Simulated scan of single mutants.
Amino acid sequence: MEELDLIDRKIVSELMRDATLSLAQIADRVGLSQTPCWKRIQKLETTGVLTRRVAIADPNRIGFGLTVFVGIEAPDHSAEWREHFTEMVTAIPEVMEVYRMAGQMDYLLRVSVPDMAAFDRLYKRLTDALPIKNVTSNFAMERLAYTTAYPIDTTTR
């Protein structure tokens, strides 16, 4: 993995906070002219440091007010089961994140749905699709903090 220099870290930090910034604004904030700044952004994209630029919506305002963290215990750890599971969960749009875990659960899913009835439908779809040893659901009551921006050091070399 190539280490990012201070200017690249500043560019990434600015874009994580607000991807709607103009090239001129980003260049000004990181101390570059526009052309070198644009070349750096392009390199960050082509090397996979920046994977996409998106708008972040308030889930409550768009009808996805229930967040559920779902722990899955697999019945076995075969490559076939993992592949089938990955295909299934990535095809469900309400599944926002999926992690393969170490510890008591094998997978952790963050699910966003409008209400309990929608979660029940998702739960049935999940458990009917393939064998699962155990499913544990934890319902978020309130989101106290949330960000998609990693805390990149933009003050040192």
Rank of each mutant, 00 (worst) to 15 (best):
E3D: 11
L6G: 06
I7C: 07
D8E: 15
D8I: 02
I11Y: 03
I11H: 08
L15W: 13
R17P: 03
D18A: 07
L21D: 03
S22A: 14
A24M: 11
Q25I: 03
I26D: 02
A27N: 02
G31C: 04
L32Q: 08
S33F: 09
K39S: 01
I41V: 10
Q42A: 10
Q42S: 07
Q42F: 06
L44F: 12
T46V: 10
T46F: 13
T46A: 11
T47G: 05
T47E: 10
T47K: 06
V49M: 04
V49H: 06
V49S: 05
L50N: 13
R53Q: 15
V54Y: 10
D58K: 14
D58C: 13
D58S: 13
P59V: 04
N60F: 11
G63S: 05
F64Q: 08
G65P: 04
G65E: 06
G71W: 01
A74L: 07
P75C: 06
P75E: 07
P75V: 06
D76N: 14
E80A: 10
E80S: 14
H84C: 00
E87N: 14
M88E: 05
V89N: 00
T90A: 05
I92G: 07
E94H: 09
E97Q: 14
V98Q: 02
Y99V: 03
M101F: 01
A102N: 12
A102W: 11
Q104L: 14
Y107N: 05
L109R: 07
R110Y: 03
R110E: 02
S112C: 05
P114I: 01
P114E: 04
M116Y: 10
A118P: 00
A118I: 02
D120Y: 08
D120A: 02
D120F: 04
K133V: 09
N134G: 02
F139T: 02
F139H: 00
L144Y: 11
L144A: 06
A145M: 09
Y146R: 15
T148C: 01
A149S: 13
P151E: 00
T154Q: 08
T155G: 05
T156L: 09
R157D: 15
